[in-house]
Nucleic acid binder design. Structure first.
Lengths: 150, 150
DNA sequence: TCTAATGTAACTGCGACTGTTACGTGATAA
DNA sequence: TTATCACGTAACAGTCGCAGTTACATTAGA
């Protein structure tokens, strides 16, 4: 499957912002700094942040000392929110060319598949809804502490 | 998301083969005939059938009067079998470039995401497992009868 | 007003998928 | 035995989406 990594980038970005940096020299979350952690280009981060902003998950301010903040508490942002924010659509695609309507099977197959896919995707979304950005951040930090020896 | 339509094509193909054509002039299921119903090229169908064959879902015979048959009863082939047969991989991808290991968040984020994705995908697979090729065929035929007036 | 950050257009490179042609291989009907 | 028919697969083109990058306008605080 040829999926994209926007979901992963978005969650990383949100977890990064959620991490409390008060008292450090990197207090302000800029696209440049976030890009360093994600290891990509700042424009990629800004594109993702634009989607998260449209979805009401983050707030950005321009100009000097601008940057990004969460619009809601990290514990209230689920991965389903993120999934929808980054515009992830259908997991399964129907062929671009419609099937032969004269064929007994072809006539209704697309409608049947559409319904089946919808059910499957609902199950996926319910699972994503169980996990919040705060969970992800917590688990990531736990790994940092237990594994890296810092 | 930029998914492919292999899953849809594969299910269509299996449902087409599962449909009982005894007594008709189209008794033998060839890639050419199946392609007509799916409205695509026969080679595309053969590629898909090759994967289904490898997975043990269909059996093909070559030569004159060759064609395709199901290797198992349609009621025992689930959409999860198909999903695996066509080599659908991960729904969500991680970025190709690894995150910054020096960053508190970047250090463990990929492992956390991987686990979360696995849980979500498991839920999806469980849903696909509930539906069989026989179900799809049955529902598609029902639509043909109730809607088309045939 | 200088500086630093966002917002976005535009372009490139890359890879995956679909569709197509072509041809070799295998098996059977005649 | 041979002609026919269907699979198996390589090879190629066209399309599309994503990721990365550069460039520049816009915005707003120090």
């Amino acid at each position: 499957m040829s999926t994209n990594s926007r979901m992963s980038v978005a969650v990383h970005v949100l977890a990064w912002i959620a991490y409390d940096r008060r008292g450090t020299d990197k207090e302000v979350g800029t696209s440049e700094r976030i890009a360093t952690s994600v290891n990509t280009n700042a424009v990629v981060i800004r594109r993702t942040l634009g989607q998260l902003k449209t979805a009401g998950l983050v707030e950005g301010s321009r100009g000097r000392s601008g940057g990004w903040q969460l619009a809601r508490d990290a514990a209230t942002i689920t991965l389903l929110d993120v999934y929808r924010a980054v515009g992830e659509g259908e997991i399964f695609a129907l062929p671009s060319a419609p099937p032969d309507p004269e064929c007994y099977v072809g006539y209704g197959i697309h409608d049947v598949l559409t319904k089946t896919y919808r059910d499957a995707q609902r199950a996926l979304c319910e699972e994503l809804e169980k996990v919040t950005v705060a969970d992800v951040l917590h688990n990531a930090l736990a790994l940092y502490i237990t594994r890296s020896g810092h």
